[in-house]
């Protein structure tokens, strides 16, 4: 008796093979960091193992004796499950920018407590916006080098970068005001390297983190434009 592979199961196998390839590509290329926190790489490994298990399960199953017609539902389910992979292929390297920044902030720059801010000396601090804001008091008064993207939608220009905690959907913008009179010709989302002094900016009784006396250099967008906790 002639035996056939179940069509719904073969469509399922196609989906899992495509996802297996996507997981491997994103993991070994390091590209997953454009969508996920750096620490979550084991998740993709888990995905690879699960997809492999499912494909092996499907291919090891016995063939059926009556040939099935593929149902429209199976084809549509398969197509919908492949939508994210289509996006990965079409828009490689796409990143969150000023549009997402303006949608995701409650206030462009978070205020700081100013009671314990005393200037400290030390070597030039090479850090990122998240770490600087997290430990602002110890960096206060020091010379700092920061990289980020430019946004000029508020009264003072800001340097911002997104912090990915788990994935891009929960990415939080972290921004800092800076002083510069040479950015008028620059467009939003241009990447800059700032060198300046960590200071504070007082606006209507609220204190904001601020980089004063800034040297600004335009730099290319880094391979890893996000910050990770």
């Amino acid at each position: 008796m002639k035996r056939f592979r179940s069509v719904p199961m073969m469509l399922a196998a196609t989906v899992y093979l495509c996802w297996l390839a996507a997981f491997i590509w994103l993991l070994f290329d390091g590209r997953y960091m454009m969508y996920l926190s750096r620490k979550l790489w084991p998740l993709l490994l888990l995905g690879c193992i699960a997809c492999t298990t499912l494909v092996i399960g499907i291919l090891s199953s016995n063939r059926i004796t009556t040939k099935e017609n593929e149902s429209r539902e199976d084809i549509l389910n398969t197509a919908i499950m492949l939508v994210p992979i289509l996006y990965f292929l079409v828009y490689q390297g796409d990143t969150l920018g000023s549009f997402a920044l303006e949608r995701r902030v409650v206030s462009m720059v978070e205020s700081i407590e100013c009671s314990d801010l005393t200037s400290s000396d030390g070597d030039t601090l090479q850090t990122d916006i998240y770490r600087l804001l997290n430990d602002y008091s110890s960096a206060f008064g020091r010379h700092v080098v920061l990289e980020g993207a430019l946004n000029t939608s508020s009264s003072q220009p800001v340097l911002y970068r997104f912090l990915i905690v788990c994935c891009l959907n929960d990415a939080i913008p972290k921004a800092i005001f800076f002083e510069s009179n040479c950015i008028d010709t620059l467009e939003n989302d241009i990447w800059l390297r700032l060198e300046g002094t960590v200071d504070s900016l007082h606006v209507d009784g609220t204190v904001y983190p601020f980089i004063r006396n800034t040297d600004v250099t335009v730099v290319p967008e880094p391979d890893s434009p996000y910050m990770y906790p």
């Binding site: 996802w19 979550l40 939508v83 994935c167 959907n169 929960d170």
Partner: peptide, 18 residues
């Protein structure tokens, strides 16, 4: 931006779903 959110959600949750 919507597709970037989608890709993040799917990549994070799909292994758990599997």
């Amino acid at each position: 931006t919507a597709f970037l959110s989608l890709s993040g959600i799917v990549l994070e949750a799909l292994p758990f779903m599997l």
